[in-house]
Write a protein that binds this DNA or RNA. Sequence first.
DNA 1: CGGAATCCGGAGTGATACTG
DNA 2: CAGTATCACTCCGGATTCCG
Lengths: 134, 134
Amino acid sequence: MDAFQWDTREDCDVRQILDRIGDKWSLLVIALLDDQSMRFTELKKTIDGVSQRMLTVTLRQLERDGLVSRTVHPVVPPRVDYELTPLGVTLHATIQSLVTWTETHQSQIAAARAAYDARESAVTASGKASSSAG
Amino acid sequence: MDAFQWDTREDCDVRQILDRIGDKWSLLVIALLDDQSMRFTELKKTIDGVSQRMLTVTLRQLERDGLVSRTVHPVVPPRVDYELTPLGVTLHATIQSLVTWTETHQSQIAAARAAYDARESAVTASGKASSSAG
DNA sequence: CGGAATCCGGAGTGATACTG
DNA sequence: CAGTATCACTCCGGATTCCG
Protein backbone atom coordinates (compact mmCIF):
# COMPACT_ATOMS: atom_id res chain seq x y z
CA MET A 1 0.00 0.00 0.00
CA ASP A 2 0.98 3.55 -0.53
CA ALA A 3 0.04 5.09 2.74
CA PHE A 4 2.36 7.96 2.05
CA GLN A 5 1.89 10.02 -1.05
CA TRP A 6 4.91 10.29 -3.26
CA ASP A 7 6.45 13.56 -3.91
CA THR A 8 6.01 14.00 -7.62
CA ARG A 9 8.32 16.95 -7.70
CA GLU A 10 11.82 16.83 -8.99
CA ASP A 11 13.31 17.81 -5.67
CA CYS A 12 11.84 14.80 -3.94
CA ASP A 13 14.14 13.46 -1.26
CA VAL A 14 14.46 10.19 -3.10
CA ARG A 15 15.92 12.07 -6.00
CA GLN A 16 18.93 13.00 -3.95
CA ILE A 17 19.84 9.37 -3.51
CA LEU A 18 18.82 8.30 -6.96
CA ASP A 19 21.03 10.95 -8.42
CA ARG A 20 23.81 9.32 -6.47
CA ILE A 21 23.25 5.60 -6.99
CA GLY A 22 21.79 6.23 -10.41
CA ASP A 23 24.96 7.71 -11.74
CA LYS A 24 27.51 5.67 -13.54
CA TRP A 25 29.98 4.74 -10.80
CA SER A 26 28.68 5.36 -7.29
CA LEU A 27 26.99 2.02 -6.94
CA LEU A 28 30.12 0.19 -7.97
CA VAL A 29 32.19 2.11 -5.47
CA ILE A 30 29.73 1.39 -2.68
CA ALA A 31 29.69 -2.27 -3.57
CA LEU A 32 33.45 -2.49 -3.65
CA LEU A 33 33.93 -0.71 -0.34
CA ASP A 34 31.34 -2.75 1.47
CA ASP A 35 33.68 -5.21 3.10
CA GLN A 36 37.00 -3.44 2.78
CA SER A 37 38.70 -0.12 2.54
CA MET A 38 40.44 0.64 -0.69
CA ARG A 39 42.94 3.10 -2.02
CA PHE A 40 42.28 5.41 -4.91
CA THR A 41 44.36 3.47 -7.38
CA GLU A 42 42.90 0.17 -6.24
CA LEU A 43 39.43 1.46 -6.99
CA LYS A 44 40.57 2.85 -10.29
CA LYS A 45 42.07 -0.39 -11.49
CA THR A 46 39.23 -2.49 -10.13
CA ILE A 47 36.43 -0.47 -11.65
CA ASP A 48 36.88 -1.11 -15.29
CA GLY A 49 36.47 1.90 -17.47
CA VAL A 50 36.35 4.65 -14.89
CA SER A 51 38.47 7.69 -15.57
CA GLN A 52 40.59 9.33 -12.95
CA ARG A 53 38.43 12.37 -13.00
CA MET A 54 35.13 10.56 -12.62
CA LEU A 55 36.41 8.43 -9.80
CA THR A 56 37.47 11.55 -7.96
CA VAL A 57 34.15 13.24 -8.57
CA THR A 58 32.22 10.17 -7.53
CA LEU A 59 34.18 9.75 -4.33
CA ARG A 60 33.74 13.41 -3.46
CA GLN A 61 30.00 13.16 -3.85
CA LEU A 62 29.80 10.03 -1.77
CA GLU A 63 31.95 11.68 0.85
CA ARG A 64 29.75 14.73 0.85
CA ASP A 65 26.68 12.61 1.38
CA GLY A 66 28.34 10.94 4.32
CA LEU A 67 28.35 7.55 2.64
CA VAL A 68 32.09 7.19 2.24
CA SER A 69 34.91 8.36 4.47
CA ARG A 70 38.21 9.57 3.14
CA THR A 71 41.40 9.07 5.12
CA VAL A 72 44.57 10.78 4.04
CA HIS A 73 47.78 9.27 5.36
CA PRO A 74 50.49 11.92 5.60
CA VAL A 75 53.12 9.78 3.99
CA VAL A 76 55.07 9.93 0.81
CA PRO A 77 54.02 8.81 -1.63
CA PRO A 78 50.51 9.92 -0.66
CA ARG A 79 48.09 7.28 0.51
CA VAL A 80 44.35 7.80 0.71
CA ASP A 81 41.98 5.16 1.94
CA TYR A 82 38.29 5.11 1.25
CA GLU A 83 35.76 3.14 3.21
CA LEU A 84 32.05 2.99 3.75
CA THR A 85 30.63 4.88 6.69
CA PRO A 86 27.97 3.18 8.84
CA LEU A 87 25.43 5.13 6.81
CA GLY A 88 26.97 3.85 3.62
CA VAL A 89 26.80 0.31 4.90
CA THR A 90 23.07 0.58 5.50
CA LEU A 91 22.59 1.95 2.01
CA HIS A 92 24.55 -0.89 0.55
CA ALA A 93 22.39 -3.37 2.39
CA THR A 94 19.31 -1.70 0.96
CA ILE A 95 20.69 -1.72 -2.53
CA GLN A 96 21.41 -5.40 -2.27
CA SER A 97 17.71 -6.13 -2.53
CA LEU A 98 17.64 -4.21 -5.75
CA VAL A 99 20.58 -6.15 -7.06
CA THR A 100 18.93 -9.38 -6.06
CA TRP A 101 15.75 -8.31 -7.82
CA THR A 102 17.71 -7.54 -10.94
CA GLU A 103 19.46 -10.88 -10.93
CA THR A 104 16.19 -12.65 -10.39
CA HIS A 105 14.29 -10.89 -13.11
CA GLN A 106 17.03 -10.08 -15.56
CA SER A 107 15.95 -12.84 -17.90
CA GLN A 108 12.38 -11.60 -17.87
CA ILE A 109 13.52 -8.12 -18.75
CA ALA A 110 15.74 -9.38 -21.52
CA ALA A 111 12.82 -11.41 -22.86
CA ALA A 112 10.50 -8.43 -22.64
CA ARG A 113 12.96 -6.30 -24.54
CA ALA A 114 13.47 -8.89 -27.20
CA ALA A 115 9.72 -9.28 -27.60
CA TYR A 116 9.20 -5.54 -27.74
CA ASP A 117 11.94 -5.04 -30.29
CA ALA A 118 10.65 -7.87 -32.42
CA ARG A 119 7.18 -6.42 -32.28
CA GLU A 120 8.42 -2.97 -33.19
CA SER A 121 10.51 -4.12 -36.10
CA ALA A 122 7.56 -6.19 -37.28
CA VAL A 123 5.32 -3.13 -37.15
CA THR A 124 7.89 -1.11 -39.03
CA ALA A 125 8.33 -3.81 -41.62
CA SER A 126 4.60 -4.30 -42.16
CA GLY A 127 4.18 -0.57 -42.31
CA LYS A 128 6.75 -0.37 -45.05
CA ALA A 129 5.29 -3.39 -46.76
CA SER A 130 1.74 -2.06 -46.72
CA SER A 131 2.85 1.36 -47.85
CA SER A 132 4.80 -0.12 -50.69
CA ALA A 133 1.98 -2.54 -51.43
CA GLY A 134 -0.71 0.09 -51.17
CA MET B 1 28.17 -10.85 2.88
CA ASP B 2 29.29 -10.61 -0.66
CA ALA B 3 29.33 -14.19 -1.71
CA PHE B 4 28.96 -13.13 -5.31
CA GLN B 5 31.53 -10.88 -6.83
CA TRP B 6 30.21 -7.78 -8.39
CA ASP B 7 30.52 -7.15 -12.00
CA THR B 8 32.67 -4.06 -12.13
CA ARG B 9 32.05 -3.60 -15.77
CA GLU B 10 29.76 -1.04 -17.21
CA ASP B 11 27.48 -3.56 -18.83
CA CYS B 12 26.66 -5.21 -15.54
CA ASP B 13 23.07 -6.43 -15.39
CA VAL B 14 22.32 -4.08 -12.56
CA ARG B 15 23.20 -1.22 -14.82
CA GLN B 16 20.25 -2.01 -17.04
CA ILE B 17 17.86 -1.39 -14.19
CA LEU B 18 19.76 1.49 -12.71
CA ASP B 19 19.69 3.21 -16.04
CA ARG B 20 15.96 2.90 -15.83
CA ILE B 21 15.13 3.78 -12.24
CA GLY B 22 18.06 6.15 -12.10
CA ASP B 23 16.72 8.37 -14.80
CA LYS B 24 14.67 11.39 -14.06
CA TRP B 25 11.12 10.11 -14.33
CA SER B 26 10.83 6.34 -14.40
CA LEU B 27 10.68 5.91 -10.66
CA LEU B 28 7.90 8.46 -10.37
CA VAL B 29 5.91 6.73 -13.06
CA ILE B 30 6.31 3.35 -11.40
CA ALA B 31 5.28 4.79 -8.06
CA LEU B 32 2.21 6.45 -9.54
CA LEU B 33 1.07 3.37 -11.42
CA ASP B 34 1.47 1.04 -8.49
CA ASP B 35 -2.11 1.02 -7.34
CA GLN B 36 -3.90 2.35 -10.39
CA SER B 37 -3.80 2.65 -14.12
CA MET B 38 -3.43 6.12 -15.49
CA ARG B 39 -3.82 7.91 -18.77
CA PHE B 40 -1.06 9.78 -20.49
CA THR B 41 -2.44 13.18 -19.61
CA GLU B 42 -3.09 12.16 -16.04
CA LEU B 43 0.52 11.18 -15.64
CA LYS B 44 1.65 14.37 -17.28
CA LYS B 45 -0.32 16.64 -15.03
CA THR B 46 0.49 14.62 -11.93
CA ILE B 47 4.22 14.48 -12.46
CA ASP B 48 5.22 18.04 -11.99
CA GLY B 49 7.75 19.26 -14.48
CA VAL B 50 7.79 16.38 -16.94
CA SER B 51 7.65 17.30 -20.58
CA GLN B 52 5.46 15.54 -23.08
CA ARG B 53 8.47 14.16 -24.80
CA MET B 54 10.15 12.76 -21.75
CA LEU B 55 6.98 11.16 -20.47
CA THR B 56 6.57 9.41 -23.79
CA VAL B 57 10.18 8.30 -23.85
CA THR B 58 10.03 7.11 -20.26
CA LEU B 59 6.86 5.13 -20.81
CA ARG B 60 8.31 3.51 -23.92
CA GLN B 61 11.38 2.37 -22.04
CA LEU B 62 9.33 0.99 -19.20
CA GLU B 63 7.10 -0.76 -21.67
CA ARG B 64 10.08 -2.23 -23.45
CA ASP B 65 11.45 -3.58 -20.20
CA GLY B 66 8.13 -5.22 -19.50
CA LEU B 67 7.51 -3.09 -16.43
CA VAL B 68 4.56 -1.14 -17.74
CA SER B 69 1.79 -2.17 -20.09
CA ARG B 70 0.22 0.16 -22.59
CA THR B 71 -3.41 -0.19 -23.61
CA VAL B 72 -4.76 1.78 -26.51
CA HIS B 73 -8.52 2.22 -26.63
CA PRO B 74 -9.73 2.67 -30.19
CA VAL B 75 -11.99 5.57 -29.42
CA VAL B 76 -12.04 9.18 -30.34
CA PRO B 77 -10.52 11.12 -28.80
CA PRO B 78 -7.76 8.58 -28.27
CA ARG B 79 -7.40 7.02 -24.85
CA VAL B 80 -4.31 5.22 -23.67
CA ASP B 81 -4.02 3.60 -20.28
CA TYR B 82 -0.78 2.69 -18.60
CA GLU B 83 -0.43 0.25 -15.76
CA LEU B 84 2.22 -1.73 -14.00
CA THR B 85 2.81 -5.28 -15.13
CA PRO B 86 3.30 -7.99 -12.48
CA LEU B 87 7.01 -7.57 -13.06
CA GLY B 88 6.70 -3.84 -12.53
CA VAL B 89 4.84 -4.42 -9.30
CA THR B 90 7.66 -6.52 -7.91
CA LEU B 91 10.15 -3.85 -8.86
CA HIS B 92 8.10 -1.23 -7.15
CA ALA B 93 8.01 -3.30 -4.00
CA THR B 94 11.78 -3.56 -4.11
CA ILE B 95 12.20 0.13 -4.67
CA GLN B 96 10.04 0.85 -1.68
CA SER B 97 12.82 -0.25 0.61
CA LEU B 98 15.09 2.24 -1.04
CA VAL B 99 12.53 4.97 -0.58
CA THR B 100 12.11 3.99 3.03
CA TRP B 101 15.85 4.10 3.52
CA THR B 102 15.97 7.56 2.01
CA GLU B 103 13.22 8.85 4.22
CA THR B 104 14.88 7.37 7.26
CA HIS B 105 18.33 8.72 6.56
CA GLN B 106 17.53 11.87 4.65
CA SER B 107 18.29 14.04 7.64
CA GLN B 108 21.66 12.36 8.12
CA ILE B 109 22.54 12.97 4.51
CA ALA B 110 21.47 16.58 4.70
CA ALA B 111 23.57 16.99 7.83
CA ALA B 112 26.54 15.31 6.19
CA ARG B 113 26.28 17.61 3.21
CA ALA B 114 25.98 20.69 5.36
CA ALA B 115 28.99 19.63 7.38
CA TYR B 116 30.98 18.85 4.27
CA ASP B 117 30.11 22.13 2.63
CA ALA B 118 30.92 24.07 5.77
CA ARG B 119 34.23 22.28 6.04
CA GLU B 120 35.05 22.97 2.39
CA SER B 121 34.15 26.61 2.53
CA ALA B 122 36.18 26.91 5.74
CA VAL B 123 39.15 25.35 3.98
CA THR B 124 38.70 27.64 1.04
CA ALA B 125 38.35 30.65 3.29
CA SER B 126 41.41 29.78 5.36
CA GLY B 127 43.28 29.02 2.19
CA LYS B 128 42.47 32.46 0.86
CA ALA B 129 43.21 34.03 4.22
CA SER B 130 46.58 32.36 4.54
CA SER B 131 47.49 33.12 0.97
CA SER B 132 46.55 36.74 1.42
CA ALA B 133 48.22 36.77 4.82
CA GLY B 134 51.27 34.96 3.63
C1' DC C 1 -5.89 13.28 -26.60
C1' DG C 2 -1.65 11.04 -27.39
C1' DG C 3 2.37 11.01 -29.78
C1' DA C 4 6.40 11.61 -33.34
C1' DA C 5 10.02 14.56 -35.34
C1' DT C 6 13.12 18.27 -35.08
C1' DC C 7 16.12 21.64 -33.17
C1' DC C 8 19.05 23.18 -29.66
C1' DG C 9 21.32 24.27 -25.03
C1' DG C 10 23.49 22.49 -21.05
C1' DA C 11 25.05 19.05 -18.00
C1' DG C 12 27.77 14.95 -17.60
C1' DT C 13 31.74 12.52 -19.04
C1' DG C 14 36.30 11.45 -20.84
C1' DA C 15 41.25 12.32 -22.61
C1' DT C 16 45.02 14.89 -21.67
C1' DA C 17 48.35 17.62 -19.23
C1' DC C 18 50.00 19.50 -15.03
C1' DT C 19 50.87 19.62 -9.69
C1' DG C 20 52.31 18.39 -4.93
C1' DC D 1 50.14 8.17 -5.67
C1' DA D 2 46.38 11.16 -5.72
C1' DG D 3 44.60 14.46 -7.29
C1' DT D 4 43.30 19.34 -10.18
C1' DA D 5 42.40 22.00 -14.48
C1' DT D 6 41.18 22.47 -19.15
C1' DC D 7 39.10 21.33 -23.41
C1' DA D 8 36.09 18.75 -26.35
C1' DC D 9 32.38 15.89 -27.10
C1' DT D 10 28.20 13.26 -26.41
C1' DC D 11 23.78 12.74 -24.97
C1' DC D 12 19.94 13.99 -22.05
C1' DG D 13 16.12 16.61 -21.89
C1' DG D 14 13.09 20.85 -22.97
C1' DA D 15 10.51 23.71 -26.40
C1' DT D 16 8.30 23.68 -30.46
C1' DT D 17 5.82 21.96 -34.31
C1' DC D 18 3.12 18.69 -36.91
C1' DC D 19 0.14 14.31 -37.25
C1' DG D 20 -3.80 10.78 -36.59
